[in-house]
Computed example of a mutant assay.
Amino acid sequence: MSYFFFFFFFFNSSQGTNQELSDVLNELWKLDVNRMKPGKDYKINLQGKAGFVSEGSNNARDSARAPLFSYVNENKLKSIDTYAHFINLLDNYEMSTGVAEQVTKEELQENNLFLDAILKTEVMKCAHRYLVSKGRASSDPAKFKRQLYDIWFKLYRRDKSGGEDSCGFEHVFVGETKHGKEIMGLHNWVQFYHQEKHNHVDYKGYKARSNKDTPDEDDHVLNLQFSWNGLVKPVGSCFIGVSPEFEVALFTIVFLLSDERVTNVKVKVDEYLLEIVVYRFGYSIGTSYPKMISSNNRDF
């Protein structure tokens, strides 16, 4: 099988669900012992279905008077190393693109402590073994860590008018704005919860593909609408309750297995049929997120 045909077949969504990748991601799912349990470690309040928002508009009907998160076990967030180190990174970035990032020695250390923490988990060890088997990562743990650093933390210029103003971690997990007019990224539930807690985020309601595919409060993936510091994101998506190491592992695998600028792959993880989307920015991640297609063990 040629190199081109392998990658075309492996990632072409028209082929349906990618079984090999689904198997790998389900193994990561089983190993994710730090995943929070819905109804026990956190509770979400879905409320109403979000309405349509026209492109460029920051006016959205609020179909959710209460926050999305009604409870999160903060003691657990603080006591699990990967969450604790992840949270330390959330205040390290300038919100707006075009403003060059200034990385301090303390922030560099925080980046490395986070990578060290997730690399100790069985989730990341499994991801590393798989990538080595595919020839997409070195078996040397130190080299793999440097590879992860470049993918997630290496700064690049997202806005051509400024300096190095962005990185994969900031965009995906923290979120940023484009010229103060548009929300970009912010696909992480811990960041969403923290921003909501401090009244920076206003959850507007859930987004469903159809009336037959409405989410429930035990779902670990959600398509949603929200405002952040006054700007509206018409449709966003994120995992709910999963650990930082699970997301890093999943998105890293999809990123490294494809050389395409944009990769869309359909997988079934646990009971969820998802489309995983990853944009490449050179040797780094531009953005990555899951899109819920269906759930609740429906026939696909």
Rank of each mutant, 00 (worst) to 15 (best):
T82Y: 05
I118G: 04
A142G: 06
F144D: 06
V269E: 00
Y272F: 08
L90D: 04
L256H: 05
K160N: 00
Y71A: 10
K49P: 00
W228F: 13
F6Q: 13
S294P: 10
S284M: 10
I253V: 04
R35I: 05
K143E: 14
T252M: 05
K120W: 03
R280K: 13
N112T: 10
K266W: 02
N112F: 07
C126D: 09
F5T: 13
C126M: 06
N18H: 03
A100D: 08
S294L: 10
F4T: 14
H128F: 07
D62E: 12
E55L: 15
A117F: 05
K125E: 07
G135D: 09
I151N: 01
N223S: 05
L155T: 00
E275F: 00
V53Y: 11
E55T: 15
N58A: 15
Q15R: 13
M124Q: 10
F10E: 03
E55D: 14
D32N: 06
E110D: 12
S243D: 02
L28H: 00
V254P: 00
N188T: 01
V123G: 02
S14A: 14
F255S: 01
I293T: 03
L222P: 00
L77N: 04
L250G: 00
F9H: 09
L257K: 02
W29F: 05
